[in-house]
Amino acid sequence: MIEIRGLCSKALNIDSLNITNKGVYGLLGNDGAGKTSLLNVLCGNSAYDSGSISVCGHDAMSEPMEVKYKVGFAPEDFGFFGDDTIFETLDFVGTAKGVPSEKRYRQIKEALELVGLEGQRKKLCAELTLHEKKLLGIAVALLGNPEIILLDEPMKNESEEEKEEIAELIKMLGKHKTAIVSSNEPIDVEGFCTHFIILSKGRCILDSSAEDIHSAIDPEIKACDGIALSISDVYCVLTHEAEEGDK
């Protein structure tokens, strides 16, 4: 599905990374770790210096348009056209993704129902709250029925209730698609991710399933506590180790 080999760019340096299964992948890392940069290269938005990225069989560098048909991307700051309504925005995206009209209206209806905005289809984007913008971003990413959904910091600046709503939504998406969700707060995503990728200064320091993640940590550290470590603990230890190693 996604295959990265020897990726090198200004912000990224990843030797190898494979994403082959459906599920929710938590992309974790501190600010500046390269999460947004990685999502941008994965959807063909950004170029890179060397290496290769294959997304659903398409090269992200030379075939960015084909990649954009396969990937739905919801950036952290979605700049919707303020004078368009929610429906017009989704209709625009569906048309841009080449979805035939009948199918498009059905997909828009389904996406709006899924994110809970079906009653606000006539609301102008300029009037949306941050949470509604994030929900619309997810709806936009779903149009065209892409195999992969990339969500950049969907939980950022959200209240606990809103985070729970988005978490439920992402959990549901992970059953049918590959969703990659970035966050610098592991606690926000650890409840629903099936896999974790941790970045530190552009390097991938962990790529593991949720079940296997504990084995990635030094057994001695585990023994010190004598209790099961959470993803947040693992994240802290690994990023700390990576930063120490760089020094």
């Binding site: 938005n45 954009k68 950036p75 979605f78 700049g79 056209f81 993704k97 080449g98």
Partner: peptide, 17 residues
């Protein structure tokens, strides 16, 4: 006038040449 920096980035996420 309808095109701002953030709407440009929105357009770039779509398969529009």
């Amino acid at each position: 006038n309808g095109v701002r920096k953030d709407t440009e980035s929105f357009m770039r996420t779509l398969p529009i040449s």
